[in-house]
Each structure stands twice: as C-alpha cells, then as structure tokens.
C-alpha cells in the first residue's frame, strides 16, 4: 500500500508536467486544428531561458519561470506568424510538415549555439527538502511541480471561461467565420492562443529542469510526444481532456514501470491509448458528434 501511494505521488508529479504540455497542444489544436509538433521544442527553449535566467541573471526560480514564459509566449507568436499563418488556408497536413520543420529548426539551432551537451540546473536554484509523510517520501520538488501546475491550470481555466479573450478563443474554435462576423479578430485570437500555449510549455520546461536537473537540446521530443498522446487520450481540442489525459498518462506510465515491466513501458502506454481510442474513438472527453452530411 505504501509502495502504491509512493507510486501515485511519482505519477502525479510526472502527470502534472505532461498535463501542462498537453494543454498547449490541445489549445492550438482546438483553434486551428494543427498538431504543433514544435511544441515540445518550445518547452526546451523555455527550459534554456529559465536556466540562463538563473545562472546569468541570478534570479530565483519563480522569476526565471516568468521570464521563460514571457519569452516563449513571444516565440510562439512569432512562429505562428512566420511559419503557420501562411498555411492557414492550405491542408492541415502541410501545416503539420511545417511544424516538423520548425521543430528541427529549434532543436538544431540550439545545438549549433549551445552544443548538444546537457546543462545542469544549479542545485541552489531550488533547495530540496524531503518530507516523510506516513512512510511516503515527498520532496519539495514534487510539491513545487504539482502546485505550480495546478495554479497555472486554474489561471488558464479562468482566462478561458471568464474573460473576453477566453470567450473569443472559444468562439473562434467553434466557428471561425461566425466569430469573424461577430467582430472578433481571428488573427489576434490565434496569436493569443499560441502565446498562452507556449507559455505553459515554457513553464513545464523550467519544471523539468528543476525536477530532473539536466536539460539538453533534444529534451523536448519525448515529453512532447507523450503529451501529444495525452492530449489525444483526453480528446484533442478539449481542455479538461488534456489535463485528465496528462495525469492519466503520468500515472499509467508509473504503474507500468512499477508493477509491470519497465522494459515494456512505452509499448503498454501506447497500447492502453489504442484500446481507449477503440472504445471511445474521439478520446475520453470527446463528443461523439456523429457524421455531418
């Protein structure tokens, strides 16, 4: 039982990170139907900005996270303007290929300037204390990751549900033409969506840096892929779906490694995903809209 609870703690903090990344995926998808494969690499850029902010500017981790989020928000908007906007009226798969191109560009530009070697988040950026709660080891990092993720998700929910911008985002994702006719600036709304999604990825990047200490230019690929799976699992384009999908993915992976065989972890994670999709073809939270004829 104690081991099980420990595994749940492990799974929840991993899941929180996946959920944050999955949110960005899902928001972008919801609004322009693009699988933004460069999302994981924005996370990597965020982690590096956080790193330099701590090491060069000497800020604390929260300021570093804020700086990374702002910088990546700008980066996200720029990427959308340069690479995705020209393709808005072409096929979705063309945009997908562009996203893959952008992903390579971010990875290898970083390698070019900063070498492919990993970098180490300074230990003093986030002092670690371990708490022993009923035999479960709970580190201050777990708490940091979990609480910041939840706070960011609450803020996101607030923005989407209670502000005008959020209303605009929902309107555009529902029906672009109608939203335009209602006087909503579609371009601006899409930019804001990219900004928010990228900022969340940057936050996740800094968390990964703090949580696992090391970052490298290719670090975004695997979490990006896992988060994409999580987003699909929850029903892509649906925000609560991404959160649940992220946590589910984290817990699932942890349980497979903990009780099954770690050798087959990725296979089982994908296997469960496929089974869920076969039972519910649009993801856990997906609406079965039926066919439009």
């Amino acid at each position: 039982m104690q081991e099980f609870l420990q595994q749940m703690v492990n799974g929840l903090s991993l899941g929180a990170i996946y959920a944050l990344i999955a949110l960005g995926y899902t928001m972008v998808y919801g609004i322009i139907m693009l699988i933004n494969f460069a999302h994981g690499d924005i996370l990597m850029v965020g982690a590096y900005i956080g790193f330099f902010s701590v090491v060069v500017l000497g800020t604390n981790i929260f300021v570093a996270m804020a700086i990374a989020m702002i910088a990546c928000a700008v980066l996200g908007v720029v990427i959308e303007k340069v690479a995705y906007r020209p393709l808005r009226n072409s096929t979705r798969i063309a945009a997908l290929i562009t996203a893959i191109g952008v992903s390579f560009f971010l990875e290898y530009t970083t390698i070019f300037f900063l070498t492919p070697n990993q970098r180490v988040y300074p230990a003093e950026a986030f002092p670690v204390t371990n708490y022993d709660v009923m035999g479960i080891t709970l580190s201050s990092k777990d708490i940091f990751v979990f609480i910041s993720a939840v706070v960011l998700m609450v803020i996101l929910q607030y923005i989407i549900k209670r502000t005008k911008t959020g209303k605009a985002m929902r309107a555009v994702s529902l029906d672009k033409e109608a939203a335009m006719l209602m006087g909503i600036s579609v371009d601006k709304t899409i930019s804001i969506t990219f900004a928010i999604g990228s900022a969340l990825a940057a936050a996740a990047g800094v968390m990964i840096g703090v949580y696992y200490n090391s970052i490298n230019p290719l670090m975004g690929i695997i979490p990006g892929l896992k988060a994409f799976v999580a987003a699909v699992l929850g029903g892509i384009g649906i925000i609560p779906g991404a959160m649940v999908g992220g946590f589910l993915m984290g817990i699932l992976e942890t349980l497979v490694s903990g009780y099954g065989s770690s050798l087959y972890r990725d296979a089982v994670a994908f296997g469960v995903l496929i089974i869920i999709l076969l039972i519910k073809p649009t993801g856990l939270f997906g609406k079965n809209t039926g066919e439009k004829v």
Partner: peptide, 16 residues
C-alpha cells in the same frame, strides 16, 4: 539540420 529545416519550411510555405 538547420538548413534542412529551413528548406522544408520554405518549400511548404511557398508550395503547400
């Protein structure tokens, strides 16, 4: 890989 990425994105933008 940077050149490859740039070529890929450029081709897709001009010839989606």
């Amino acid at each position: 890989m940077i050149l490859y990425a740039v070529i890929l994105v450029t081709v897709m933008i001009y010839r989606p």
